[in-house]
Amino acid sequence: MTDIATMPQPVSFGRRLKRFMADRPLIPLIILLVILVVILQILRPGIVNERWLANTAKFAIPLAILAGCQTMTMLTGGIDLSVGTVATMSAFIMATQIVNQDPAVAFLLAMLPAVLIGLVNGIGVGVFRVHPLIMTLGTSLIGTGFLQVYQRTVIASGAKIPDFLNWLGTGVTYGFPNALFLFVPVAVLIVFTLNRTGFGRLLYAVGDNEHAARLSGVRYWQVITALYIVSSLLAGITGLLYIGLIKAPSLSLAEPLVLPSVAAAVIGGTSIFGGRGGYMGTIVGALILTVLTTLLTILQMPEGGRRILFGFIVLFVTAAYLRIVEDR
Protein backbone atom coordinates (compact mmCIF):
# COMPACT_ATOMS: atom_id res chain seq x y z
CA MET A 1 0.00 0.00 0.00
CA THR A 2 2.85 2.34 0.83
CA ASP A 3 4.24 1.89 -2.69
CA ILE A 4 1.17 3.46 -4.24
CA ALA A 5 1.42 6.47 -2.00
CA THR A 6 5.11 7.16 -2.62
CA MET A 7 5.67 6.27 -6.28
CA PRO A 8 5.70 9.24 -8.68
CA GLN A 9 2.58 9.10 -10.80
CA PRO A 10 1.04 11.24 -13.54
CA VAL A 11 -0.95 14.19 -12.23
CA SER A 12 -4.32 12.88 -13.26
CA PHE A 13 -3.74 9.70 -11.31
CA GLY A 14 -2.61 11.67 -8.28
CA ARG A 15 -5.78 13.66 -8.38
CA ARG A 16 -7.85 10.54 -8.78
CA LEU A 17 -6.00 8.98 -5.85
CA LYS A 18 -6.74 12.02 -3.72
CA ARG A 19 -10.38 11.91 -4.70
CA PHE A 20 -10.50 8.21 -3.88
CA MET A 21 -9.02 8.84 -0.46
CA ALA A 22 -11.32 11.76 0.22
CA ASP A 23 -14.30 9.54 -0.50
CA ARG A 24 -12.98 6.83 1.79
CA PRO A 25 -11.34 8.68 4.67
CA LEU A 26 -10.46 5.41 6.40
CA ILE A 27 -7.86 4.49 3.78
CA PRO A 28 -5.29 7.27 4.41
CA LEU A 29 -5.63 6.57 8.13
CA ILE A 30 -4.93 2.88 7.68
CA ILE A 31 -1.99 3.71 5.41
CA LEU A 32 -0.62 5.95 8.14
CA LEU A 33 -1.05 3.17 10.69
CA VAL A 34 0.80 0.74 8.44
CA ILE A 35 3.61 3.26 7.90
CA LEU A 36 4.00 3.66 11.66
CA VAL A 37 4.14 -0.10 12.17
CA VAL A 38 6.72 -0.39 9.38
CA ILE A 39 8.87 2.33 11.01
CA LEU A 40 8.60 0.45 14.28
CA GLN A 41 9.70 -2.77 12.61
CA ILE A 42 12.66 -1.02 10.97
CA LEU A 43 13.80 0.58 14.21
CA ARG A 44 13.52 -2.61 16.23
CA PRO A 45 13.45 -5.59 13.85
CA GLY A 46 11.33 -8.46 15.10
CA ILE A 47 9.27 -6.37 17.52
CA VAL A 48 6.09 -6.78 15.49
CA ASN A 49 4.95 -10.24 16.51
CA GLU A 50 1.88 -11.86 17.96
CA ARG A 51 2.60 -10.75 21.51
CA TRP A 52 3.16 -7.19 20.43
CA LEU A 53 -0.12 -7.16 18.54
CA ALA A 54 -2.00 -8.48 21.57
CA ASN A 55 -0.33 -5.89 23.79
CA THR A 56 -1.09 -3.05 21.42
CA ALA A 57 -4.72 -4.13 21.26
CA LYS A 58 -4.91 -4.33 25.06
CA PHE A 59 -3.74 -0.76 25.49
CA ALA A 60 -5.64 0.60 22.50
CA ILE A 61 -9.02 -0.79 23.60
CA PRO A 62 -9.67 1.40 26.68
CA LEU A 63 -8.53 4.41 24.66
CA ALA A 64 -10.79 3.41 21.77
CA ILE A 65 -13.88 3.06 23.98
CA LEU A 66 -13.28 6.43 25.62
CA ALA A 67 -12.69 7.89 22.16
CA GLY A 68 -16.07 6.40 21.27
CA CYS A 69 -17.63 8.59 23.98
CA GLN A 70 -15.89 11.58 22.38
CA THR A 71 -17.00 10.56 18.89
CA MET A 72 -20.66 10.35 19.85
CA THR A 73 -20.66 13.60 21.81
CA MET A 74 -18.60 15.38 19.16
CA LEU A 75 -21.14 14.36 16.51
CA THR A 76 -23.64 16.61 18.30
CA GLY A 77 -21.07 19.39 18.54
CA GLY A 78 -20.24 18.52 22.15
CA ILE A 79 -17.36 16.94 24.01
CA ASP A 80 -17.19 14.82 27.18
CA LEU A 81 -14.15 15.60 29.30
CA SER A 82 -15.61 13.87 32.36
CA VAL A 83 -14.90 10.38 30.95
CA GLY A 84 -11.55 10.15 32.75
CA THR A 85 -13.06 10.93 36.14
CA VAL A 86 -16.03 8.63 35.53
CA ALA A 87 -13.76 5.73 34.52
CA THR A 88 -11.54 6.32 37.55
CA MET A 89 -14.53 6.46 39.90
CA SER A 90 -16.03 3.21 38.60
CA ALA A 91 -12.68 1.44 38.77
CA PHE A 92 -11.89 2.69 42.26
CA ILE A 93 -15.34 1.93 43.65
CA MET A 94 -15.32 -1.53 42.10
CA ALA A 95 -11.88 -2.33 43.51
CA THR A 96 -12.79 -1.19 47.03
CA GLN A 97 -16.37 -2.47 47.21
CA ILE A 98 -15.54 -5.96 45.95
CA VAL A 99 -13.71 -6.56 49.24
CA ASN A 100 -16.92 -6.72 51.27
CA GLN A 101 -19.69 -6.86 48.72
CA ASP A 102 -21.22 -9.28 46.29
CA PRO A 103 -19.72 -8.69 42.77
CA ALA A 104 -23.12 -7.75 41.33
CA VAL A 105 -23.72 -5.18 44.08
CA ALA A 106 -20.21 -3.81 43.63
CA PHE A 107 -20.82 -3.50 39.91
CA LEU A 108 -24.06 -1.60 40.42
CA LEU A 109 -22.40 0.68 42.97
CA ALA A 110 -19.58 1.31 40.50
CA MET A 111 -22.01 2.24 37.72
CA LEU A 112 -24.07 4.57 39.91
CA PRO A 113 -21.72 7.59 39.76
CA ALA A 114 -21.37 7.09 36.01
CA VAL A 115 -25.13 7.37 35.50
CA LEU A 116 -25.39 10.33 37.87
CA ILE A 117 -22.58 12.29 36.21
CA GLY A 118 -23.98 11.49 32.78
CA LEU A 119 -27.41 12.67 33.87
CA VAL A 120 -26.06 15.95 35.27
CA ASN A 121 -23.97 16.50 32.12
CA GLY A 122 -26.99 15.81 29.94
CA ILE A 123 -29.30 18.12 31.85
CA GLY A 124 -26.69 20.88 31.95
CA VAL A 125 -25.96 20.67 28.24
CA GLY A 126 -29.43 19.73 26.99
CA VAL A 127 -31.74 21.74 29.22
CA PHE A 128 -29.65 24.64 30.48
CA ARG A 129 -27.56 24.88 27.30
CA VAL A 130 -24.21 25.12 29.09
CA HIS A 131 -21.18 24.67 26.85
CA PRO A 132 -20.31 20.93 27.02
CA LEU A 133 -16.63 21.66 27.60
CA ILE A 134 -17.39 23.61 30.75
CA MET A 135 -20.15 21.34 31.94
CA THR A 136 -18.13 18.14 31.71
CA LEU A 137 -14.98 19.75 33.15
CA GLY A 138 -17.08 20.96 36.07
CA THR A 139 -18.71 17.62 36.77
CA SER A 140 -15.33 15.91 36.55
CA LEU A 141 -14.02 18.32 39.20
CA ILE A 142 -16.97 17.48 41.43
CA GLY A 143 -16.51 13.77 40.78
CA THR A 144 -12.85 13.92 41.74
CA GLY A 145 -13.81 15.69 44.95
CA PHE A 146 -16.31 12.97 45.82
CA LEU A 147 -13.75 10.31 45.05
CA GLN A 148 -11.25 11.89 47.44
CA VAL A 149 -13.84 11.98 50.21
CA TYR A 150 -14.85 8.40 49.43
CA GLN A 151 -11.23 7.26 49.56
CA ARG A 152 -11.03 8.26 53.22
CA THR A 153 -13.97 6.07 54.15
CA VAL A 154 -12.54 2.93 52.57
CA ILE A 155 -8.89 3.46 53.38
CA ALA A 156 -9.03 0.78 56.09
CA SER A 157 -10.71 -1.94 54.05
CA GLY A 158 -8.12 -1.93 51.27
CA ALA A 159 -8.67 -2.78 47.63
CA LYS A 160 -8.36 -5.76 45.36
CA ILE A 161 -8.83 -6.41 41.70
CA PRO A 162 -11.54 -9.04 41.06
CA ASP A 163 -10.30 -12.08 39.14
CA PHE A 164 -12.83 -11.52 36.42
CA LEU A 165 -11.48 -8.05 35.63
CA ASN A 166 -7.94 -9.41 35.72
CA TRP A 167 -8.94 -11.99 33.15
CA LEU A 168 -10.66 -9.37 31.03
CA GLY A 169 -7.87 -6.82 31.29
CA THR A 170 -4.74 -8.88 30.79
CA GLY A 171 -5.82 -12.41 29.78
CA VAL A 172 -5.13 -13.81 26.34
CA THR A 173 -7.16 -16.56 24.63
CA TYR A 174 -5.62 -18.20 21.54
CA GLY A 175 -3.45 -15.15 21.05
CA PHE A 176 -6.38 -12.75 21.21
CA PRO A 177 -6.62 -10.47 24.23
CA ASN A 178 -9.76 -11.12 26.24
CA ALA A 179 -10.58 -7.42 26.20
CA LEU A 180 -11.79 -8.01 22.66
CA PHE A 181 -14.74 -9.95 24.13
CA LEU A 182 -15.88 -6.64 25.56
CA PHE A 183 -14.66 -4.36 22.82
CA VAL A 184 -16.09 -6.08 19.74
CA PRO A 185 -19.72 -6.02 20.97
CA VAL A 186 -19.32 -2.43 22.17
CA ALA A 187 -17.79 -1.32 18.87
CA VAL A 188 -20.44 -3.14 16.83
CA LEU A 189 -23.13 -1.58 18.98
CA ILE A 190 -21.73 1.93 18.56
CA VAL A 191 -21.30 1.56 14.80
CA PHE A 192 -24.75 0.02 14.46
CA THR A 193 -26.32 2.75 16.60
CA LEU A 194 -24.66 5.54 14.64
CA ASN A 195 -25.36 4.16 11.18
CA ARG A 196 -28.55 2.17 11.40
CA THR A 197 -30.77 3.46 14.19
CA GLY A 198 -32.95 6.49 14.66
CA PHE A 199 -30.94 7.60 17.68
CA GLY A 200 -27.73 7.67 15.63
CA ARG A 201 -29.42 9.69 12.92
CA LEU A 202 -30.69 12.13 15.55
CA LEU A 203 -27.11 12.64 16.77
CA TYR A 204 -25.92 13.54 13.26
CA ALA A 205 -28.99 15.73 12.71
CA VAL A 206 -28.55 17.66 15.94
CA GLY A 207 -24.85 18.18 15.24
CA ASP A 208 -25.33 19.19 11.63
CA ASN A 209 -28.04 21.76 12.12
CA GLU A 210 -29.59 21.98 15.54
CA HIS A 211 -32.19 24.52 14.54
CA ALA A 212 -33.42 22.43 11.63
CA ALA A 213 -33.49 19.35 13.84
CA ARG A 214 -35.62 21.16 16.40
CA LEU A 215 -38.01 22.40 13.76
CA SER A 216 -38.36 18.84 12.50
CA GLY A 217 -39.62 17.84 15.91
CA VAL A 218 -36.47 16.49 17.54
CA ARG A 219 -36.63 16.84 21.31
CA TYR A 220 -33.14 18.21 21.75
CA TRP A 221 -32.81 17.84 25.50
CA GLN A 222 -33.95 14.20 25.47
CA VAL A 223 -31.43 13.27 22.78
CA ILE A 224 -28.60 15.07 24.58
CA THR A 225 -29.45 13.66 28.02
CA ALA A 226 -29.61 10.11 26.67
CA LEU A 227 -26.35 10.68 24.82
CA TYR A 228 -24.39 11.87 27.85
CA ILE A 229 -25.73 9.04 30.02
CA VAL A 230 -24.64 6.50 27.40
CA SER A 231 -21.26 8.19 27.14
CA SER A 232 -20.79 8.08 30.92
CA LEU A 233 -21.84 4.42 31.12
CA LEU A 234 -19.32 3.51 28.45
CA ALA A 235 -16.66 5.42 30.36
CA GLY A 236 -17.58 3.55 33.55
CA ILE A 237 -17.23 0.19 31.81
CA THR A 238 -13.90 1.32 30.38
CA GLY A 239 -12.78 2.07 33.92
CA LEU A 240 -13.51 -1.53 34.96
CA LEU A 241 -11.55 -2.82 31.97
CA TYR A 242 -8.69 -0.43 32.64
CA ILE A 243 -8.29 -1.38 36.28
CA GLY A 244 -7.96 -5.01 35.15
CA LEU A 245 -5.16 -3.89 32.84
CA ILE A 246 -3.28 -1.48 35.12
CA LYS A 247 -4.00 -3.34 38.41
CA ALA A 248 -3.28 -0.36 40.64
CA PRO A 249 -6.33 1.62 41.77
CA SER A 250 -5.44 5.27 42.12
CA LEU A 251 -7.31 8.55 42.10
CA SER A 252 -5.92 9.56 38.72
CA LEU A 253 -6.16 6.18 37.02
CA ALA A 254 -7.82 7.09 33.72
CA GLU A 255 -7.08 10.82 33.73
CA PRO A 256 -4.12 10.50 31.29
CA LEU A 257 -6.49 8.96 28.72
CA VAL A 258 -8.82 11.95 28.42
CA LEU A 259 -6.90 14.22 26.09
CA PRO A 260 -5.63 11.33 23.90
CA SER A 261 -9.24 10.13 23.57
CA VAL A 262 -10.18 13.51 22.11
CA ALA A 263 -7.13 13.34 19.87
CA ALA A 264 -8.08 9.83 18.69
CA ALA A 265 -11.56 10.95 17.69
CA VAL A 266 -10.20 14.01 15.89
CA ILE A 267 -7.50 12.04 14.07
CA GLY A 268 -10.22 9.54 13.13
CA GLY A 269 -11.97 12.29 11.20
CA THR A 270 -14.83 13.23 13.50
CA SER A 271 -15.46 16.95 13.26
CA ILE A 272 -15.28 18.73 16.58
CA PHE A 273 -18.07 21.01 15.35
CA GLY A 274 -20.49 18.15 14.91
CA GLY A 275 -22.40 16.39 12.18
CA ARG A 276 -19.51 14.56 10.53
CA GLY A 277 -17.48 11.48 11.39
CA GLY A 278 -17.87 7.91 12.53
CA TYR A 279 -16.59 5.33 14.92
CA MET A 280 -14.45 3.23 12.53
CA GLY A 281 -12.07 6.12 11.98
CA THR A 282 -11.87 6.66 15.71
CA ILE A 283 -10.78 3.05 16.30
CA VAL A 284 -7.97 3.50 13.77
CA GLY A 285 -7.12 6.81 15.44
CA ALA A 286 -6.78 5.07 18.82
CA LEU A 287 -4.54 2.40 17.24
CA ILE A 288 -2.38 5.10 15.64
CA LEU A 289 -1.92 6.87 18.97
CA THR A 290 -1.07 3.60 20.76
CA VAL A 291 1.51 2.58 18.14
CA LEU A 292 2.91 6.09 18.27
CA THR A 293 3.35 5.83 22.03
CA THR A 294 5.23 2.54 21.61
CA LEU A 295 7.39 4.13 18.94
CA LEU A 296 8.32 7.04 21.18
CA THR A 297 9.00 4.68 24.08
CA ILE A 298 11.45 2.47 22.16
CA LEU A 299 13.25 5.58 20.90
CA GLN A 300 14.17 5.96 24.60
CA MET A 301 13.45 9.64 24.65
CA PRO A 302 13.14 11.52 27.90
CA GLU A 303 9.54 12.01 29.00
CA GLY A 304 9.63 15.67 27.97
CA GLY A 305 10.80 14.93 24.45
CA ARG A 306 8.15 12.25 24.07
CA ARG A 307 5.37 14.65 24.97
CA ILE A 308 6.70 17.26 22.55
CA LEU A 309 6.78 14.77 19.68
CA PHE A 310 3.35 13.44 20.61
CA GLY A 311 1.88 16.92 20.43
CA PHE A 312 3.47 17.71 17.10
CA ILE A 313 2.44 14.40 15.57
CA VAL A 314 -1.19 14.77 16.67
CA LEU A 315 -1.20 18.20 15.09
CA PHE A 316 0.52 17.05 11.92
CA VAL A 317 -1.75 14.03 11.43
CA THR A 318 -4.90 16.09 11.94
CA ALA A 319 -3.70 18.79 9.56
CA ALA A 320 -2.68 16.29 6.86
CA TYR A 321 -5.96 14.46 7.23
CA LEU A 322 -7.98 17.65 6.88
CA ARG A 323 -6.05 18.52 3.71
CA ILE A 324 -6.88 15.15 2.18
CA VAL A 325 -10.52 15.03 3.16
CA GLU A 326 -11.61 18.63 2.70
CA ASP A 327 -10.38 19.37 -0.85
CA ARG A 328 -13.29 17.82 -2.62
Binding site: A263, V266, I272, R307, F310, G311, F312, T318, A319
Partner: peptide, 19 residues
Protein backbone atom coordinates in the same frame (compact mmCIF):
# COMPACT_ATOMS: atom_id res chain seq x y z
CA UNK B 1 -3.03 24.19 9.41
CA UNK B 2 -6.74 25.15 9.58
CA UNK B 3 -7.10 22.56 12.35
CA UNK B 4 -9.71 23.56 14.99
CA UNK B 5 -8.13 25.71 17.71
CA UNK B 6 -9.17 23.25 20.42
CA UNK B 7 -7.03 20.53 18.78
CA UNK B 8 -4.07 22.81 18.04
CA UNK B 9 -3.89 24.11 21.60
CA UNK B 10 -4.34 20.55 22.87
CA UNK B 11 -1.28 19.58 20.82
CA UNK B 12 0.72 22.59 22.04
CA UNK B 13 -0.36 21.68 25.58
CA UNK B 14 1.63 18.45 25.17
CA UNK B 15 4.52 20.27 23.49
CA UNK B 16 4.82 22.97 26.15
CA UNK B 17 4.43 20.44 28.95
CA UNK B 18 7.20 18.34 27.42
CA UNK B 19 9.42 21.39 27.03
Amino acid sequence: TRVPDIVVTLATLFVLQGA
